[in-house]
Design a protein around this nucleic acid. Structure first.
Ligand SMILES: [Mn+2]
Ligand SMILES: [Mn+2]
Ligand SMILES: [Zn+2]
Ligand SMILES: [Zn+2]
Lengths: 147, 147
DNA sequence: TTTGTAATTGAGATACAATCTCAATTATAC
DNA sequence: GTATAATTGAGATTGTATCTCAATTACAAA
């Protein structure tokens, strides 16, 4: 079992890319955040450690991390792409509260199976799939009743 | 069973909004397109009939059509939001080919049921859900083998 | 039908995430 | 160490989407 850093180093080497201090910083940042994040949140966190780190470098690095399956695009909230690290985590679906923004994660094996079935039916080779349910969490439902 | 125009007129009236010629044109345009479309494609089509029609009016009208469940945001392709009309159509999921852009539509009752089950489990009140599978269609798989 | 009024429109300005440019810097293989 | 191609930061640029505002218009009430 490789570490995420090994995975990234291997990916970079295989593609003739360099393991720079900036990329290392971003990699560590991504795996130290244990929730969904967008690029600006990540930049804000990392910029404190390295005042020179540019947003452009993050924009350039995250697609690399997606490419080698360390992180994943999850949702788009308020026009911003959200990411989460997935290395060492199971795939899961997301329930997003439209009021408070709360995200519930759920894994349902039977849905995964059915998706595979659908792909077979259409001779479709899936690379990625995303199930997002938008609505209202329990708390927000109660608040709305109270009004 | 109301027509989509009745639906829209009622929605507008209920909200103190006006049924303008522009909105009528956009409504008809949306229901004469029998595939997924983005705002620019719609504008290009409608602009021929009414040279004055502004993109801004389309940007302003589509959210109204979403609000009254006549159309739906489906996917985001190349940074553009894609819509489709849903009035009179069953809900379905989308398989998108990353190479040629082909979209396969699929309805799987069992997945729908499981989604409801998940929502119950978390006391979550769903408003909308979207399942998107990205990958390669059969044709594109064959092309890639040939290379 | 006429009138009053708030909603709507088009054109252009603006916002803003994401991408690109380019000269200076740097990781890595030899 | 050297050579070289990749990488970086800063700022410019792109392109979708939103906003502004004066002029227009739908529509309800008279
Ligand atoms: Mn998640
Ligand atoms: Mn569809
Ligand atoms: Zn909530
Ligand atoms: Zn294809």
């Amino acid at each position: 079992m490789n570490s995420y850093e090994d995975e990234f180093r291997n990916y970079l080497k295989e593609n003739g890319l360099k393991f720079t201090p900036e990329r290392q910083l971003i990699l560590k940042g991504v795996f130290s955040l244990h929730k969904h994040f967008d690029i600006d949140q990540l930049w804000e966190k990392l910029h404190r450690k390295d005042r020179r780190l540019s947003r452009a470098t993050i924009y350039r690095t995250l697609p690399l991390l997606v490419e080698c399956n360390l992180i994943q695009e999850t949702l788009r909230c308020q026009g911003r792409v959200q990411y989460e690290h997935i290395f060492g985590h199971e795939h899961h679906d997301h329930l997003v509260c439209l009021k408070c923004g709360k995200i519930i994660e759920s894994r349902e094996e039977r849905i995964e199976k059915l998706q595979e079935e659908i792909c077979k039916r259409y001779h479709f080779k899936a690379v990625e799939h995303r199930l997002g349910i938008r609505g209202y969490c329990q708390k927000c439902q109660n608040k709305m009743k109270g009004t």
